[in-house]
Design a protein around this nucleic acid. Sequence first.
DNA 1: GTCAATTCACATGAAAGAGACCACGGTCTAGTG
DNA 2: CTAGACCGTGGTCTCTTTCATGTGAATTGACGA
Length: 398
Amino acid sequence: MQEKLRNYFSQYMNRDSIFRDKNYLNHNHIPTEILHRDDQISYIAKVLAPSLKVQQPSNLFVYGTTGTGKSLVMKYIFNEMMSTNNNGLNTIYINCKLRKTSDTEYRMLSYMLKELNFPVPETGLPTESLYNKLFELIDSKQQIILLALDELDAMINKIGDGLLYNLTRINSDLKNSKISLIGISNDISFTESLDPRVKSSLSEEEIIFPPYNALQLKDILFKRAKNSLKQESYSEAVISKCAAIAAQEQGDARRALDLLRVSAEIAEREEEDKITEKHVTHAEQKLELDRVVELAKTQPRHSQLTIYSILKLFAKDQEKMLTGDVYEVYVNLCKKNGYRILTQRRISDLISELDMLGLISTKVVSKGRYGRTREIKLAIAKKPYDILKNYFADLYEL
DNA sequence: GTCAATTCACATGAAAGAGACCACGGTCTAGTG
DNA sequence: CTAGACCGTGGTCTCTTTCATGTGAATTGACGA
C-alpha cells in the first residue's frame, strides 16, 4: 500500500501539469488589460478624473448583472488612479456581500476605518463614535475619498439606507475633504426603496455594464487560458463550449472562468493531457453539485433540519408541500434528536431564506377556504439530492 | 343562481428579549526590586 | 511599584419569540328570480 502511494506521488510529480499558472483563471485576478470594456472604462475614468486634482467627482452608480466585470473594472481603475497620484486621494473598495466586512452599519464603518489604517474593535463601541472617528480621520487633511460599495443592493436590503444617508450628510460638514460614492449593483430595482435624496445624489452619473456575448467571452477565455494553461492542453472547441454555457447564463464571465478551471482540474485528475468537451460537461455538473451541497452543509442547524424535513417529504413522493407539512416533520425531527423546537413563525422565515438561496422554490398560494400558505418545491437535481439526504440522515437519524 | 360575508392557514411586520461577544476602565493580586 | 488577572458596565449582533395584522379564494348562507 505504502509502495503504491509513493509510486502515485512520484508519478504525480513527474507528470506534466496542464496548468501553467492557475492564478490567471481566478476571478479575483486583475489582468493588465481588460477586454471589451473600453467604453465603460473611459466613461468611469472621465467621471472620476477630477479626484486626481483633489476635486470632488460626481457620485456614480454602476449597474450590470453578475460577471460583467463591474468589480474588476472598478478595482482596475482604482489601481491605476492610485499609481498615478495618491496624494490627497484615497480609494476604498468594499464588497457589501462579504458577511465579515459588512452586514451591519457598524461593521461597514469599522471596515472603512480599517482601510484608512485606523483599526477599531469589531464590537463594543457605540456606532456614533465610529462616525465621529471617521469624520475626524477624513477631515484631518485635504483629500478626496472614493468609496466603492460593491453589491450595494445586499447592503440596502440588510441595513437600509441609513449609512448612505449619513455619508452624504457628512459630506456637507466636511471642510477639507469630500467623499464620493460609487455604488455597484446587479439589481437596479432596489433603488426604489431608497430615500429620494439618497437616490438622486447617488445616481448623479450612471453607467450600465451589458452582459458579455459568447464571442467576447471567448476572447476573454483565450487570453486567460494563454497565461494559465499549457498551449497544447486546450482547444478552440473547449473554450467555445465554456463561453457558450456562460453566455446562456447572462454572459457571466466569472462562470466561464470557473468552468474552464474546473474542466482543466478534472482533465488533470483523469491523467489526460488535453481538456475535452466531455470535461466541460463534467465541470458544469460538478460546479452545480458543489455549490448546492456546500450551501446546504454550511447552513445552521435548524435550517438544516428544515431542509431535511423537505427532503424527507419529497422522498415520500410529495412534489409540492405546504409550510404546515414541513413544520410537522421538523417538529418530529427535533423531538427525536432532542433539539429545542423553534416556532412556526421562525421556520417560515427559514423557508423563505432557503428559497432565496435557491435550494427550494416557493410560491404563496391561497387555497380558499383551506387557507393561505406557501407551496414548497425542491429545486435541486437528483445527485445533490441523494448526497444531501444521506448526509443529513447520518446526522439526524438515530 | 348570485352575491357578500365568513373562514382557514398561514404570510408578513414590528418589537422586544436572550445570550453571545467585546471594549473600556477600575480594582485586586502577586511578583519584583 | 507595576503588570496582569478579574470584574462591572455599556455597547453591538444574531437568533428567536411574541403579538398583531393582513390576505385571497373556497365555502357558506341569505336572498331573489
